[in-house]
Design a protein around this nucleic acid. Structure first.
Lengths: 244, 244
DNA sequence: ACAAAAGTGTTGGTGTTACACCCATGG
DNA sequence: CCATGGGTGTAACACCAACACTTTTGT
């Protein structure tokens, strides 16, 4: 932690901060192969009626990550998710205007990035939370600099998917290889890899175990259900692992 | 930017923050093949006489990155450097104790990570700045949670070196391939790659141009001086590029 | 029988590793 | 002439993209 020093303080005015957390919450709608982001429609100035990232001020005694979890819990009910810190933005004079705190107080926003399981993510309806899933490709102009943050989060999502097994945080306990493939396609685009090669590569990693159970998805040959094997993955942790 | 809402405020106390910036500043001593980090010895409580990362409070009207640059400029004079944001830490009750501001005010630390050119980094000597380069492998117990931050920065440095050309921000304008190799060895360890292969791979990227000038480093055949070609690199920007 | 989905195999090309070897210079 | 460091080449192997092919189901 830094320290200014008492003598310094007399010469230079330190800024007082209000700290907020903004979440970029993604989910993959596997039915329709769409990547979604959770947004809330603002109900007051500034940027009234614009979409924005769900955010909150940090409360006393609350860690940043707790704060992020709290916003999430206010908007959706979800069990399985992946959450990590994204970036911290704080330009001078970026405090939300019209706020009762804006006088002489500066604003700092720590953004978090999350991926949640769409099928189990139940939107919480209330007056407070008026949230909705929007298709990432069609997101309109957002409030504040939230488009920038969203773009940043989207880049991080793609990287994470390629280099770490966050997909399995968000897939059902047992899944078919095609479901994994669909998820990757939705996030990374159709042409990132062909199915056979993706399959072979994924299996060669040795972190999935075949449950032996077969399942039918409409017509076609039944697929094996696989399970993510955390134990086999453990030694690969922190290694530069490429999935695609 | 997040917003709490006036009704929320009455129910929950928001935290007031003082924001500091802490820098993890690395340099590579190519003469002795040592990776160094810039630390300052604390001159007041808490953790008096302990080494710590150079840090400062953020002043009014100052962006976070400016703040990071300012600390750097207070400790060393340097022209060439690479700087990026690292991570934001803020647990409740982590405010530097004995500080005149600690009552009711919470602390948040945004850390930055920098790599500077050692040969031109001139330490600024004064009572305020009592900074020194320490060998990363031999860093003792630091003040606060600075060991954690340093560890995090070290990890980032290794990743950056593998995936982006930050080495050339910190090498002289013209350099031999062996100088690049030494830098990589110092940061990543001796056994990351053998010289021939490193060489071949680096040249195949097509981002270095041979100046034709030869230079003698003691005995042995003279080496070519190369220059980083920013234009050739431009199209590779944002691509997942592997150097080792 | 046929379409659809799951899963296997082949092939040419490219990248990586671990070396051996040649070149130019100082002492 | 030999030690030293710079620089080139190569054989064995692993990996990868593209695509053809087989298997098992629903209709």
């Amino acid at each position: 932690m830094a320290e200014g020093g008492t003598n310094r303080v007399k010469k230079y005015a330190l800024a007082d901060f209000q700290v907020g957390v903004d979440n970029v919450i993604f989910s993959v709608d596997t039915k329709n192969n769409r990547l979604l982001v959770l947004l809330v429609k603002r109900k007051k100035e500034p940027f009234i009626d614009r979409w924005s990232l769900p955010g909150t001020f940090v409360r006393q005694g609350e860690s940043l990550e707790n704060s992020a979890q709290r916003i999430l819990a206010e908007k959706i009910r979800v069990k399985n998710l992946y959450l990590e810190q994204l970036y911290t933005f704080s330009e001078p004079n970026c405090h939300p205007r019209e706020s009762p705190y804006s006088f002489g107080v500066r604003y700092l926003s720590v953004s978090y990035f999350a991926l949640v399981r769409f099928e189990e993510a139940e939107l919480i309806a209330s007056e407070e939370s008026n949230a909705a899933w929007l298709v990432v490709k069609k997101v309109p102009q957002l409030a504040f600099d939230h488009n920038k943050i969203l773009e940043y989060g989207y880049r991080r999502l793609r990287n994470k998917l390629e280099y770490s097994p966050i997909a399995f945080d968000v897939l059902p306990d047992k899944f078919t290889l095609n479901e994994v493939y669909q998820l990757y396609c939705t996030v990374l685009g159709e042409n990132f890899s062909d199915y056979s090669n993706f399959r072979a590569k994924l299996l060669k990693l040795g972190i999935l175990s075949d449950t032996g159970v077969k399942v039918c998805r409409g017509a076609g040959r039944p697929a094996s259900l696989y399970r993510f094997d955390a134990e086999s993955f453990a030694p690969l942790k922190d290694k530069p692992l490429v999935f695609i």
